[in-house]
Every structure is written in C-alpha cells, then in structure tokens.
Amino acid sequence: MHVADLTEELVAIPSHEDESAAGEFVASWLRDHTDATVEHDAHGNVVARKGSGDGDSLALVGHHDVVPPDESQVDADGGYVVERSDGRIYGRGSADMKGSVAAAMLAFEAADTPAEDELVFVSFAGEEQGGVGCRAAIEDGFSVDYAVVGEGSTGYSAPGITDVAVAHKGRRGSTIVAEGAAAHASEPEAGANAIYRATEAVDVVRGLEFPSTGVLGHEVRGSVAVTEIDGGSAWNVIPEQCEATVDERTVPGERAPLDRVEDTEGVSWRVDQDLPPMACGDADFADAVLDSATDAQDGAPEHVVKPHATDAGWLAAEGTDCVVVGAAEPGEAHTADESVSVDVLERCQRIYEGVAASWVR
C-alpha cells in the first residue's frame, strides 16, 4: 500500500472530539497486515509489538488525534475533507500527524521480526490535550528504550530537508494572581490596587534570564513572556484582583524561577500546564537515525532542536532516549489549509525502515 493512500484514509476519519474510530482503524490495519501483537487500550492508544523483548526496544511513535478542524475542512456529513493536489495531501491532521503515522505503520509492516530486540509501533490518543494518552500508557507500565517520534522535523536546517531533532523545548503555562482591596477610584488610598501589584510581578518576570542548556553540542534556549493580563471591574473602581498569564518555553533540566513573583505583596503564582522538554542522551542512537535520514534523501540532514513540545517529552522523562523525525514542516500544522508533501511522507517511511533495520537485531 502506498503511504499517500493510507494517509488519505486516516485523515478522512474525524478524530478531534473522539479518537476511537481512528484508533480502531489503525489497530485493525495492523492486525490485518502484520503478525504483531496489537492492543487498542482503554485510553485509546494503539500499541503493536514485534520480537521477543529480551533485548532493547525501539518504538515508532505517533498520535492519531487532531486539533478541531476549520469549517472548510469538514464536509456536509461531518467527515473530514481530504484532497490530493500538486504532490500534497490536504486535510486536518495530514501534517500533524496522520501522514507520519501512516509512514510508521508501513515501516512497521515491512520490518522483519527482531530475533533479540523488540520493535514497537504506538499511536497515542490525546496528544493535543497535553499528552493524556501517552501519560496514561506510562502509568500503565508502557516503557521503551528508544523512540523515533514522528512529529515534524522537516525544513529546520534547510528547506525541504527532513532533519533529526535531538531535543525540543517544553512549555510551562502559569498564572500570576494579584489580590488587593476594592475602593472608589476617587479615593485610591482606601483600597489596594491589584493591577499595580500585578505589574510589579510582571516586572519581576521581565527581569528573569531565559533558561538554556546544551544537548549533544546544540544550545537549547528557552523563553519567558507575559502573554495576557486581565483585571478590574469598572472604570471607577480600584481593582481587587488582576491575573497575568505567563508562557515559559522550558529546556531540559532548567526552569525560570517564576516563584519569585510571590515576593510581591498580595501575589500568588500557580502552574496550569507543564509539558516537559526532551533531550536525547544517547549520541550513538541519534547518529544512527541521522545516518538513516541521510541515506533516505539527497540533501544533508542535521541534528536540530525543535521548538515545540511533543509526547517525546513524557517518554524522555521516563528514561526513553528519543529523537523526533517527521514529515510536517514549520507552519503546516493546525492551519485551515494544512497539508503534507507526499514525497516527504515516502522519505519518512524510508527513514523509519532504515532505523528499524539498523537498530534492532
């Protein structure tokens, strides 16, 4: 089966509110086309295994859920619109990341059953909701030694080149909460202005240094920014509460000391989301995947750093050495005209096949 045809079948299945139909398609296809042990678990994850599992384990990792589609991406019957034009497949989830899932399925099908190691295919549910499927699988005992995660890595070192990401940033979203005391605006000294307290805390954030670290010779530099502020109830009332949203892009092993904002009177700080970063700790594995990527294309791929959090962060936190290799290019995912290159899907299939052949025994 050609990767473009399998991608189109996957993309056509709605999976932004309920991933069960897409997961069942993946599980059924693997049962029909491989002799692997296939599980479609209660969380919606699909896990297929080949090999004895006595040695190392290598996983090809993806997810089959998507973000809500644009209205132009849905047909009259509620299905997703899928089109192929000029060597690209258009539709919600084509780039993020059903195209790479299809490439991994075909690579898993083509791979020989390892004699000593274990080859795993896994497509998680709920990645777009903070990695809930991956986290649930880990809680249930899912563990692998190495993973190639099929999120986008194309176009980072040069246009059209599929690179190997050896690290990615995480995201910690948090809220500064400033509380004061309401009063009439004509007598501001009678109250305590929560907006003033919040802006003092914002100044603390502005003064923080961005976290940074090194991964396999590459600098990974984070960032911290206040992105929203909300406070006040009326033009003539001293505000008693104000909140500010902070977006921090985290790096492996480092966090900005945002708790310093609580040194400001009346200010507290809470973490709303913390998606972990990823750093590959095995240079030999990263080099082996880069060799496969080099063999699969005419250009010269590189080890790169990816700015976006993925399920690789959750796996890495549990000890899995991960890299990210996938078809999506920057700016393709989550858009009204989301698309993926058929040529790059074919390339990713070759990369995954090459890694499986070279790394498992």
Rank of each mutant, 00 (worst) to 15 (best):
V220L: 07
F285I: 08
A42C: 03
L6D: 03
V261S: 09
G354P: 07
A167L: 07
D32I: 00
G51M: 04
D96P: 05
N45E: 10
G91L: 08
V148W: 00
L345N: 09
V148C: 01
L58N: 01
D259E: 15
G44Q: 02
P14Y: 05
Q273D: 11
E127P: 00
T264P: 10
A279G: 11
R135L: 14
E209F: 06
D337V: 04
S268R: 15
A165D: 04
Q241C: 05
R171M: 11
P211L: 04
E9G: 03
L258N: 12
E39R: 15
L345W: 06
E329R: 14
Q129F: 14
E139C: 08
D70M: 03
S85D: 07
F108K: 01
V340I: 11
S123M: 00
E127H: 01
E332F: 12
V340N: 06
D35P: 10
V305P: 09
V325H: 00
W359E: 08
V122Y: 00
A76H: 08
E338Y: 13
P257D: 05
T162P: 04
V261K: 12
P301K: 14
E118N: 15
I13K: 05
G180F: 11
D145K: 14
S233Y: 12
A107C: 02
M97T: 04
A244L: 15
G150W: 04
V226W: 08
P257A: 06
G130K: 02
F285Y: 13
A317C: 01
P114W: 14
E228V: 03
G326D: 01
S52N: 03
D291Q: 12
V82P: 13
T335M: 15
R255V: 09
F108D: 00
W269D: 04
G78V: 12
F124R: 05
G266E: 15
S268N: 15
N193T: 12
I89Q: 09
W29Q: 10
H33W: 11
V26G: 00
D35M: 04
I89R: 13
V324R: 02
V324M: 08
A110Q: 11
E219F: 07
H63M: 01
V261L: 13
S72E: 12
N45P: 12
F285D: 01
H334L: 07
A296I: 09
D274S: 03
A76Q: 13
E24V: 05
V342M: 04
A110H: 06
A48D: 03
C322T: 04
A76C: 02
V324L: 14
V246F: 03
D35Y: 06
E200W: 11
R135T: 02
H2T: 10
G93P: 02
R84H: 06
V148T: 00
A316N: 03
V149N: 00
G87D: 06
G133R: 15
V344D: 13
A110F: 07
D140A: 15
E200Q: 15
G150C: 07
V251Q: 02
S85E: 08
D284T: 14
V305N: 11
G91W: 13
E83A: 13
Q73Y: 15
D247K: 07
C322N: 10
G160R: 11
A317Q: 06
K50L: 14
D298R: 03
E219K: 11
L208D: 07
R361L: 08
S157G: 02
A76W: 09
A288I: 05
V323I: 04
P69E: 10
G281A: 14
G319N: 08
A283E: 15
P211R: 11
I238M: 07
A102L: 07
T175E: 11
H168K: 06
